[in-house]
Amino acid sequence: MNSATNSAAKSAGKSGNEQRGEERREERERAVTTAVQPTGTAARILEVFGEHLPVRDIYSPEGSRLYDVITRDDHSEVREILRAARGCAGPVLDLACGSGRLTLPLRALGQDVVALDSAPEMLRILGERLAADGARRSGAEVRLVEGDMTSFSLDLSFDLVVLGATSVTLLDAPSRARLFARVREHLAPTGRFLLSATDHLERAARPTERIRLLTGENGPDQALHLMVEHLDPLAGTRSISILRQTVRAGEVVANELFVSRVHTVSSAELSDELDAAGLRVTARHPLATGGPGDAPGVVLLECVR
């Protein structure tokens, strides 16, 4: 018996309500393409839409394109990292480079860059941006590398390694230890490692949320992005959910929910982990986040071997 016949035979013994309920569950399973479940306000949004709301990982191919849209005008930490990059003799390693939020300004500064990311779609977008930018920039080279920042091996040492956008929180403690070992191995004797970190655990004592509304586009259409950041310090997690509503001719034509969950780790904890890995924090630079006064603090940690 083939699968279609088998499915029909199973359905024949069920009531209409049971069959419709199973169909809704199957539709929901097809729509949810990530194991990360929304929390807080995002979970309530999902309850309202039910199976009609596709849920995707923010680092999926479609999520990568969304990430590029909402971060393209985000210039936080760029100025501080460019200041540190001035005068570097060798290439810069940009870990978790995404679609080039740091790579492109580093290249514009005249620095050769090795840009590493594990998401092929992110690198494809960065490649397109580099090609479009090529007529205006000359001299500096960018090498794109698809790889895991906890297990990469390159044939270079670097005067500067950067890990921006608090991307260190993508990793749990064992993975961070592997990352720091790889960084130390690739850092020149006088090189520096810069990473941005949050101080969530030093400021929050209970679950909190921040909700922002951003505008952008989805291909040729306009889009509204409702971003929900849910911080649970007891669980040690920070969830980011983005409801994208695609607007065409004044009407919402599509709703999608993109989700991710990262680990909360304070800059003090990171300092201890870095020290254990043979990387010493020599400076802490506060970063402006552009948020309200009670927004979580972000710092740029400067480290040496």
Rank of each mutant, 00 (worst) to 15 (best):
M1W: 09
G16F: 14
N17G: 06
Q19T: 09
R20M: 15
R25I: 11
E27C: 12
R30H: 04
T34L: 09
T34M: 05
A35C: 02
P38V: 01
T41S: 15
I45F: 11
L46M: 09
L46T: 07
V48Y: 14
G50P: 01
E51L: 08
E51W: 07
L53A: 12
P54L: 05
P54D: 04
D57S: 14
I58C: 04
Y59N: 10
S60Y: 05
S64A: 11
D68C: 02
V69E: 10
T71W: 03
D74Y: 09
S76E: 05
R79K: 14
E80R: 02
G87I: 07
P91S: 06
L93A: 06
L95R: 00
R101Y: 02
T103I: 01
L104W: 04
L104T: 09
P105I: 06
P105D: 02
L106Y: 09
A108H: 14
L116Y: 01
D117C: 03
P120N: 13
R124K: 13
L126E: 04
G127Q: 05
E128L: 15
R129F: 04
L130M: 03
G134M: 11
A135C: 08
A135Q: 13
R137K: 15
R137Y: 11
S138E: 15
S138F: 07
A140M: 04
E146K: 06
M149A: 03
D155K: 12
L156H: 10
V162T: 09
V168K: 05
T169H: 13
L170G: 07
H186E: 10
H186D: 03
T190H: 12
T190A: 15
R192C: 06
T198E: 11
H200C: 01
R206Y: 15
R210P: 01
I211T: 13
T215D: 14
T215N: 14
G219S: 13
P220A: 13
Q222S: 15
Q222F: 13
L226M: 06
E229Y: 12
D232E: 02
L234G: 10
G236F: 14
T237F: 08
T237R: 14
I240H: 08
I240L: 07
S241R: 00
L243W: 08
V247T: 10
V247S: 03
G250Q: 11
G250H: 08
E251Y: 04
V252D: 02
V252K: 05
A254T: 13
E256R: 04
L257T: 00
V259H: 01
V259Y: 08
S260C: 14
V262W: 01
S267T: 11
S271N: 11
D272W: 08
L274G: 05
A276L: 13
V281C: 08
R284D: 07
H285Y: 05
G291D: 10
P292Q: 09
G293E: 15
A295Y: 04
G297Q: 11
V299T: 13
L300H: 06
